[in-house]
Design a protein around this nucleic acid. Structure first.
Length: 269
DNA sequence: CCCGGAACCTGAAGGC
DNA sequence: TGCCTTCAGGTTCCGG
């Protein structure tokens, strides 16, 4: 499940292969993958352009083009960008460059592609980047203000903080010792500071591990990430909590599987 | 605006 | 063995 650390890894590892290259063709095998503009205009505006750089915002990956426009990809829950794809299974699009190809593999068909003039067309609604210096505990506190929904549900809202998804939300709340069902607005200042520190620590460590390959995530070279080997609670239902030895529980929050330790993360203090 | 639930997808896993 | 059901989840949409 690509979240911020996975998309950051894809950006880092794809950059040396595509920056400076020219787009020679683009082939789509599933038409709904292209959100904007129409296919004909998309091809006209994209083919022939050079890639000047890659940027990530939240879970979106932006390819900055020579014209100043952006080719944008979102991997959603099962997408990968691969430099090779020998068996060709689940390939929904191929970006062809002078001398190499990038395969957009996406079994679930949730991934999407755009071509936009400004990053803000897609990034404007996103909350702050959690790993930038400007993301302070105070910024987080303001974003949580007035939100009565469970903190886990609020974390999945990309307008609050960009890039956190289901599995890292669980890891962050465990690291901060906060129960996922705590109403966001009920969190005390000290608890928000713990969550803020946990966001930086958990996401930073996951990037260092090149992301987590829980299900359908591959790095561009086909390798897996290793961040999931360090998961304390995410997808660890029934296993022993490394903090206290009791069992990790699974509940559903906003229709998402949510893992936590009832002893380390009590609802009532 | 906020909140929660359904929809979009299809492979994998579990039940019988 | 094989059919059927359920589950997984990022984002968007819709109703309250």
């Amino acid at each position: 499940m690509p979240e911020l650390p996975e998309v950051e890894t894809v950006k880092n590892e794809l950059t040396p292969f595509v920056v400076g290259r020219q787009v020679t063709d683009v082939v789509l095998f599933w038409d709904k993958i292209l959100r904007k503009p129409g296919l004909k205009e998309f091809r006209n505006r994209l083919i022939g352009q050079h890639i000047e750089g890659l940027e990530r915002r939240g879970k979106y990956l932006f390819f900055r083009l020579g014209s100043g426009e952006y080719l944008v990809l979102h991997l959603k829950m099962s997408g990968s960008l691969l430099l090779n794809n020998p068996d060709g299974r689940f390939v929904r699009a191929v970006l062809q460059f002078d001398g190499m190809k990038v395969y957009f593999r996406d079994p679930r068909k949730f991934g999407r592609i755009w071509l936009v003039a400004e990053m803000d067309e897609l990034a404007k609604a996103l909350g702050p980047e959690p790993l930038e210096d400007g993301f302070t505990a105070e910024v987080l506190a303001v974003r949580l203000r007035g939100r009565q929904a469970p903190i886990k549900a609020v974390f999945l809202d990309q307008k609050v903080v960009a890039g956190i998804g289901n599995m890292y939300a669980d890891e962050i709340l465990f690291a901060a010792r906060i129960h996922p069902l705590r109403p966001a607005a009920s969190l005390r200042r000290e608890e928000i500071e713990r969550i803020h520190a946990a966001i930086k620590q958990v996401l930073g460590a996951a990037i260092g591990n090149k992301g987590a390959s829980v299900r359908e995530y591959f790095r561009p070279g086909g390798e897996l990430g290793t961040a999931h080997f360090e998961f304390k609670v995410a997808h660890q239902g029934g296993k022993v909590c490394p903090g206290c030895g009791s069992r990790v529980e699974r509940i559903t929050v906003r229709n998402r599987g949510t893992y936590y330790c009832p002893r380390c993360q009590p609802l009532e203090p």
